[in-house]
Design a protein around this nucleic acid. Structure first.
Lengths: 334, 334
DNA sequence: TTGAAAGCGCTACCAA
DNA sequence: TTGGTAGCGCTTTCAA
């Protein structure tokens, strides 16, 4: 493999000049730059990442910690991952993929050994045990999600409380007065997942605000889970006229179950989903939905990491305003 | 951050001794080892990855190239990814995630800059344009999939031809003589995806072998795609008594469509799926299926990469024998 | 069983 | 506008 000295020799300049051509950190005459670039191309030169990291304390790598538990929605996770990798590349960074299996130790390992410049973490819990470790690292981190105490750490997410409010506002506007929330699987609540709690909190509050009677239930996956959830709702608040579904896995079985029971959407029951756009339109009925902007969130997470690295930004929390798109699943109650 | 010299000083030994304690590449007295390890723990020392890579030409990182096109089955991809990351960690390696967007340039970038020790690639095409580049790299690569000319490159995959044969053997054993293959989406065939072609080839051949009349059709996603596919099958070979489904996305809409048409599984029509175990059992009817052993393939891909790095293995192709598990979707034709 | 020291390839400071 | 060079923190040979 060619080294920087090989390039320097071929171009008739010094190694430092080659380095500066590459980094753009000091002015280089057009002529010199051209000669150097020709040599680089000629020799198919690629700077050695390790040497660069050693000399500059910069790796051009971001760590991305993804949840790989059974109860997460894989396609949505992948949307985040894709967005992060793509955005990272536009900033000339690569992505090191960590699963949460290793927990805090994994973070300390990659950060301690200077493998990455910054960390991005998904699936944040309200009292996330990783937070103290993150605060100790010399690298900045960005959370996708918002813990109870985000102090000193950057956070980005959809404003789930506002999203819940938006769903209820929409339904209340149609005249609904009895609404149920079909929430994520119980495990998601049990471990205090940030977004689930924030959505639930916003839902309860907005119900009071709009004068809507509301129930909320978690929902296990599959047809059985959906039936149990509906039964629970019915026991607590009979004759709901609308459902807010914050559970992608439940969507299809739920619509199925409603059809089997002869309850038509939106004639007999209105449905608002909280999910990525593409899953909302892929359902048997095109669902009115509040978008989960995975791509935007992933991109912004990378942008925030870059801001922190450049010293341009402080670690703050950023919540994206909800977008509710009307489709074919909401109508006035009969 | 503590350096190796800090550790050496704290333990009262030389830097090289610390290095050897870490690598185990030369005998160290128990007593010295203990002192060094205590110092390492005390100072929370982590070797600098870049420095290590520079000195040793080893990064302890694997590149994983994943397809992120619209027409891939995301949950299956994630199974491979999870398996690769987990296996990599058991070998003390991390995983750098690349998407195929960058194509050959991305491979040359991470390999050329010595960011990784080896590469693992998914979604291989028969005439994969990346092969020449891979052969030029100094790092070994492992393909998940088998191109037409795998010469000089390690490959690992399910034996899809044998899998197709196994499905037909099972159906022929039940007495079926008219069988259809519901294949992947047309785009998968169009780009010459290795596994799709190998399955199709095996299917045609085995049909002849077992005296079964067979049709094969690609199948677009969604209910409409499934109906079009079934129509095509019916036009070419009416009254098939069994379906082999090599398309996870189509599975649910297909079973739905059959139910709507009043064709019961397995009474009226038998179904064999080719998919991961968990999706086979998650369907409305527990499907007899040939397993796609994503976890095993991912793990073996890492193992092969390690073998190549250690010089213990040559780049060869390894095909896993199929496993067909009988469940509730196959019976004799009426 | 251990130590000393020469690089690995690059960046960035100091000079010119 | 450019060059020289001292490290960055580690591995590994050579010596003892």
């Amino acid at each position: 493999m060619a080294t920087i000295s090989d390039v320097a020799r071929a171009a008739g300049v010094s190694a430092s000049t080659v380095s500066y051509v590459l980094s753009g950190r000091r002015p280089i005459s057009a002529e010199t730059r051209a000669r150097v670039q020709a040599a680089i191309a000629e020799l198919r030169y690629h700077p050695h990442a390790g040497a660069r990291a050693l000399a500059s304390s910069r790796t051009s790598v971001l760590a991305l910690v993804v949840p790989l538990r059974a109860d997460v929605n894989v396609p949505v996770i992948m949307q985040f991952v894709t967005a992060v990798v793509t955005a990272a590349r536009t900033h000339n960074h690569d992505v090191l993929l960590l699963t949460m299996d290793e927990g805090t130790a994994g973070l300390e390992r990659v950060a301690g050994s200077t493998m990455v410049d910054a960390l991005i973490l998904m699936d944040v819990e309200r009292q996330d045990v990783r937070l103290p470790a993150l605060r100790r690292l010399k690298q900045p981190s960005v959370l996708i999600g918002v813990p109870d105490d985000p102090d000193g750490i950057a956070c980005i997410d959809l404003d789930f409380a506002a999203t819940a409010r938006e769903c209820l506002r929409h339904l209340a506007g149609h005249g609904h007065r009895r609404v149920a929330l079909v929430g994520p699987t119980p495990a998601v609540y049990q471990r205090g997942t940030s977004y689930a709690d924030r959505f639930l909190g916003g839902f309860i509050e907005a119900a009071a605000e709009f004068g809507v009677r509301a129930v909320a239930r978690s929902c296990e996956p599959g047809g059985d889970g959906v039936r149990a959830c509906l039964a629970g709702i019915d026991a607590e608040l009979p004759d709901v006229t609308a459902l807010v579904v914050h559970n992608e896995e439940a969507l299809l079985p739920l619509l199925d179950e409603l059809r089997i029971r002869g309850r038509r959407v939106p004639t007999d029951v209105s449905v608002v989903a909280v999910c990525p756009r593409d899953v909302a339109v892929a359902q048997p009925v095109r669902l009115t939905s509040a978008d989960i902007p995975a791509h935007e969130v992933g991109t912004l997470a990378v942008e925030m990491a870059m801001g922190l690295l450049a010293g341009r930004a402080a670690p703050t929390t950023r919540l994206l305003a909800p977008t509710l798109v009307e489709r074919d699943s909401c109508a006035a109650p009969r």
